[in-house]
Write a protein that binds this DNA or RNA. Sequence first.
DNA 1: AATTATTTTGAATGATCGTTCAAGAATGTG
DNA 2: CACATTCTTGAACGATCATTCAAAATAATT
Lengths: 188, 188
Amino acid sequence: MAKAQFDRNKVVDQSIALFWQHGYSASSMQQVVKSTGLKPGSIYLAFGSKEGLFREALETYAQNSITRIRTILDSAASVGEGICTLLEKFVEDSTRTDYCSCFLVKTQLELASVGGELHEFASSRLLAIEAEFCRYLEREYDATLSKQRATSIMLHIFGLRVYGYHPGAAQRMRDGLRAGLSWLPWGE
Amino acid sequence: MAKAQFDRNKVVDQSIALFWQHGYSASSMQQVVKSTGLKPGSIYLAFGSKEGLFREALETYAQNSITRIRTILDSAASVGEGICTLLEKFVEDSTRTDYCSCFLVKTQLELASVGGELHEFASSRLLAIEAEFCRYLEREYDATLSKQRATSIMLHIFGLRVYGYHPGAAQRMRDGLRAGLSWLPWGE
DNA sequence: AATTATTTTGAATGATCGTTCAAGAATGTG
DNA sequence: CACATTCTTGAACGATCATTCAAAATAATT
């Protein structure tokens, strides 16, 4: 009974890069074949279909995202400072030359019209992220205010994910964040 | 010299609907043929290519968007009230069953990786919308504050365009807007 | 009515799409 | 080492993709 000879994690990571950059429709299985070096048969045996591979890529990305958020918020001196750090990281993301927004956000927009699992999954993970913020905020604020501010943060994050494509957007985004999230401890 | 027998505006409007909903890659020229009733040859004579038709659809959509914004802001009692009305309309957009975000935002995200005219056009129109807000705000605030608040508004609009896909998002978005744009005159 | 300029038609093109499958290679088990 | 099981290979499939074009139809001009 032969075991798979390729590294599944590597294949998923390469698929994340491909799908994240080009989206679902504009990524072809032949590009996957080329970028992973696997033959079609191996991919289909391991992941079932293009949708199956995309789902696994998206799930992995979502898990990484939540981990990233928790790591930053857990190591911050306060929830507010952690959120500032996180938002600044999102701003920095957009200054990379290969910036391509957020895989979950892009999937949410691209696949809304067809509905289905992938769109619902993206939606559910984004809501989970908001719930995560809310959970952290409740350490310092009451339930109502935490919920409201968590939503406000999500609106800003989504905003950054779109606004980040403008050239020279970083400084404007920082100003916009300070204007809209003035309750955060933005250091001087 | 025969004149075109179809209504160009109608064809463009139908193309806006198609491309807006499914995006560039997931829309096929065969769908355009079916939804417009035109034959391939006529479409290619009139618009040159899929990209040409998409560009004209996107340009028309962008023009309509700016007109919509100006109409609402011009007929408001104050700039602030006009912006509130506009944001509420964006919230209401998201409650439609066939909601599909903003055509410019979707194009910006989908076509960023390929670059090119279409992505740059989407980008330029979104920046033009921000400049428009800035122009209106300068009636009531100084240049610096106007710029900052225009960016903050854009971040919130982009946020709405993504957040709107969540079921039951309308009320949460309203709360989030009041939290992030507290300087606006949100009636009681 | 004849001529000219333009548009419409719709089948056809080659390319690429996601996917399959029979055959061969590789590995674990007895 | 033989057997059973699983994985890999890569050519091939039918479907669909954006696009083309020669021929027919239409409308403006003479």
